[in-house]
Write a protein that binds this DNA or RNA. Sequence first.
DNA 1: ATAGTGTTTTCGGCATGCCGAAAATTCGAG
DNA 2: CTCGAATTTTCGGCATGCCGAAAACACTAT
Lengths: 224, 224
Amino acid sequence: MATKRPSSAIEDYLRAIYGLVERGVEVSNATLAKRLRVSPSSVSGMVAKLADLGLVTHVPYHGVELTEPGRRAACDVLRRHRLIELYLVEELGYTWDEVHVEADVLEHAVSDSLIERISAKLGDPTRDPHGDPIPAADGSVEQPPTHLLRDLEPGASGEVARVWDTNPEILRYLAHNGITLGARIEVLERQPFGGPLVVRVGERTHSLGNEVTAVLLIRVPTSQ
Amino acid sequence: MATKRPSSAIEDYLRAIYGLVERGVEVSNATLAKRLRVSPSSVSGMVAKLADLGLVTHVPYHGVELTEPGRRAACDVLRRHRLIELYLVEELGYTWDEVHVEADVLEHAVSDSLIERISAKLGDPTRDPHGDPIPAADGSVEQPPTHLLRDLEPGASGEVARVWDTNPEILRYLAHNGITLGARIEVLERQPFGGPLVVRVGERTHSLGNEVTAVLLIRVPTSQ
DNA sequence: ATAGTGTTTTCGGCATGCCGAAAATTCGAG
DNA sequence: CTCGAATTTTCGGCATGCCGAAAACACTAT
Ligand SMILES: [Mn+2]
Ligand SMILES: [Mn+2]
Ligand SMILES: [Mn+2]
Ligand SMILES: [Mn+2]
């Protein structure tokens, strides 16, 4: 039989760990606690449990890492999460800033058979509304090579391939300014001392602050 | 602000109590325990809690009854449950025997805004796939007057208005024999000593056992 | 009235997951 | 090397919901 699904708390931890790694953020007790809006002592407790279950390796006072079973379980949740996000946008008229919260709950409630029907109805898509890759049913994921907008130099250009979906306000700000998936974006200049990045999108130019440029992933055509 | 939603355990108890009353089954500790697949001692504990919360009245060693707030909360879950069942059938190709289990989980996970989008997409329907009335968003329900097939006498006829959805096997059996919502059904004869009821549906006649006739609700045209 | 039977409640216990306070550990600055 | 700040862990505790065993109760038949 298909082995039982982890509790929703466990699934949230696994997805959080996977998400931090995906964004290149250090997976510390503190970053996990902040991301999950939970106290550090709760994280300690759950990490010990995950290690017991063989889903992570844990070196006390140092880091946490997903094991292969842990990575697999994380991908399972992530697949559900992202398919649900896309489904809500495609079938129920949600916008990309509204779907994350809803999917964070539903990801634990949909059965395997329901999620496969959803996937089929959507044509087995590979990207969610934020450009995030949707893990396949077999647990494989393809991470598209992109660059953080923050790291691009003036003169560089490309198209918006992905947006980190944590902050709905930023997502609304972006959409409001025509900065959506697939938009062509060109870096015009970078103001010093942590100042904004001036970019052109279509006809318009925008000065984007650090919080925004740290959230936009750009596909640059001829990047070595 | 909209007051917080009860836990899923509480919602399941409320829906179970409502469902027993709806079917005219005595709401006892035992019937509740059986329906919820939980021990009698668990029911005692939860009923005390529901009484504390003002959702039921409880006379120890006697019955449980929903208060008005309790009835209202039950209708809220029931609305979600039935809209989800219908949505799964209409939009995702589920059959009427598959939806109950799925809805039992999802009913606790969908937000109010999602359920209203679902309702809108379905055209604000008033019946679920089993013919059960869908409570309105304001908590009102219309219970259509029907008769249990078991109680009809030979010669009576009507159409299938509603099917109690607890047992998927019976639902499959019915569908397989063309006994679906709206089907015209006529009672031909009743075998004595708890024997089957012989009915005609379309061209065919069927001998239906007690478990089946106890689950079919018939709208009889000229019933006084 | 009383005994017996079946139902309901009480009680102690377990599992999960959260918290704050206090102790332990790490690591950089000096 | 040692001190101190920051991070992590440990500890006791709380909330929710479940269980089985035993006690309390109600109801029926005698
Ligand atoms: Mn979640
Ligand atoms: Mn996403
Ligand atoms: Mn339920
Ligand atoms: Mn139903």
